Structure formats: C-alpha cells, structure tokens
Simulated assay, not measured.
Amino acid sequence: MTTPRDLLIVAMDGESGRPADRGSLSLALAGAEVIDLLGVRAVALDGDRVVPGDPPSPDDPLLRAAASSLVRQEPYESVEEWLWRRGRDLSSAYLTAFETEGQLTRQRRRLMSFRASDVALVDSPARRGAVDRWESHEPVLVALATAAGLYGEPFDEAAEGSPDTPDIADDAVATVLAAVNDAVMELEAVRQRRSIEDAAFDNVWRGL
C-alpha cells in the first residue's frame, strides 16, 4: 500500500473524528504522492521545486500516474504548484480506484460524501495495514491526516482527540507537509471569502 491509499482509508474509516472535506483531502493526497515518490527516489526537492528522477516505475498505478505527470523541464514546478495541479479531484480518482478494485461497497448513489451510510470499506489486508500504521501514530500519516482537517484545523494540537503534531526529521518531507498545510488553509480562506461575498450579494438583493 501507499501513503495516499492509507490516508484515504483513514479518512473513510470514520474513527478520525469528522468527515473528510474532499478539497482538503485531495491536496493531502497529492502531498502524500510526493512523499512516496521521494521515498523511492522518483523525485527530489531542490528547495521547494519537485525535480524528477529516473528510478523504476512505481508498482501502484495511481502513483505511477503521478510520476508520469511530473513536470520535467526546468525550472520544474514548486510543491505548491504540484498540489493544486495534481490535487484537483484527486480524491475522486482514488475513490474510483478503490471501487474498481473491490475495496468499497456502495450503499447509496452519492459516492463522494465519505459518510458510512453512502460507502463502506471492505475488510482487507490493505485496510488492516492502514489501521495498523494509523494506530502506531506513524508521523507522516498523522501529519497528513491532521493537515486534511480530520481533527479540526490543520495542525491543531489542542483539538480534542488529536494526536500530538509529529516531529518530521526529513527536511524534504517536512517541506511537503508544510506546503500541504498552507494549501489547505489557502483553500479555506478562499471559501470563506466567497461565502462573505455571496452573503453581501444576497444582502444587496434583499435591500432592493
């Protein structure tokens, strides 16, 4: 299993405290892909730039697709640029893969809400492996789940039931996690700004 797959399982398992937001989760999944690609030396970071390498192709088809979509011309793209480009609807892609592979049972038509009444994970070695990784408080998985808002605000150590924010020793991994956290907060800021603008627009119409 890969880190993105483990993260999706954690998000869907319903024990992390709250439903996953699809946008935040997609950004975290894109970050998880970079981290796994770093682990197999398919990429390296030059500052915050994602520099492709030339290792064997990853076994996982989604991770292989991620590797094939890397920008291979200088100045390459930043981690932030990767998150927004690769992360677009990425949670949908992983859900589709899970369903195709028989890892989900669909209980209603709305596949994307992540609520237990809509879809459920089947019991599988992949699920048990992700749960074991989660219950051991593996630092990268915990950091990604926290950044995705599964415990409230990104990296909110005071959130009830949240594990302590993990200490990440690898500088490249820490750079990716920081970029994920920043992107999630930017996404939330955009949503709040749009909500305020929509409310102001509604108030104008009420006053006419």
Rank of each mutant, 00 (worst) to 15 (best):
L208S: 07
A30C: 08
Q73A: 15
A130W: 04
F201T: 11
S92K: 13
I196N: 11
N203V: 13
P125G: 05
T96M: 09
G161M: 08
G152Q: 01
F155W: 14
L45G: 00
P61W: 05
A199E: 12
V50S: 04
V176P: 01
D46F: 05
L63P: 00
A178S: 05
R128C: 00
A174M: 02
L104F: 04
V180T: 04
I196M: 12
E101V: 07
A174I: 15
A179N: 03
L29H: 08
V131R: 15
I9G: 02
A66G: 09
S136Y: 09
S113D: 12
D89C: 06
R72T: 09
A148L: 09
M185S: 12
R206E: 15
P19G: 07
R5A: 14
R106G: 02
I168N: 11
R41Q: 14
G207D: 14
E186P: 05
P58R: 03
D13V: 05
Q73S: 10
A97F: 01
S113F: 07
D198E: 07
N203P: 01
W84F: 08
R22I: 05
S69M: 04
P4I: 04
T2P: 00
V79T: 03
S69G: 14
M185E: 13
L95Y: 04
D170W: 04
G17L: 08
D167G: 14
W134V: 06
S24L: 02
A97Y: 03
I196R: 15
L37K: 00
L208N: 12
L90G: 06
S136G: 14
W84Q: 02
A143C: 09
G31V: 04
G102P: 06
E33W: 01
G39P: 00
P52K: 15
A147C: 13
R49E: 01
D6L: 00
R127L: 10
D167N: 14
R133W: 11
L38Y: 00
V122F: 13
L63K: 07
A178T: 12
V190Y: 12
F201K: 11
M112L: 14
D21T: 13
L83P: 00
P19A: 00
R72E: 12
A183D: 04
L150R: 04
D156K: 13
E157Y: 11
D36H: 01
R49Y: 04
R191P: 06
P4V: 08
G149T: 05
A178E: 05
Q107W: 15
L144H: 02
D202V: 10
L37Y: 02
A172Y: 06
R110W: 06
S16E: 08
F201C: 10
E188R: 13
S26C: 11
F98M: 09
L7C: 03
L45I: 07
R85S: 12
R72P: 03
L90H: 04
M185F: 05
P154D: 11
L121S: 03
D167E: 10
V180H: 02
D198G: 05
R194W: 09
A147H: 01
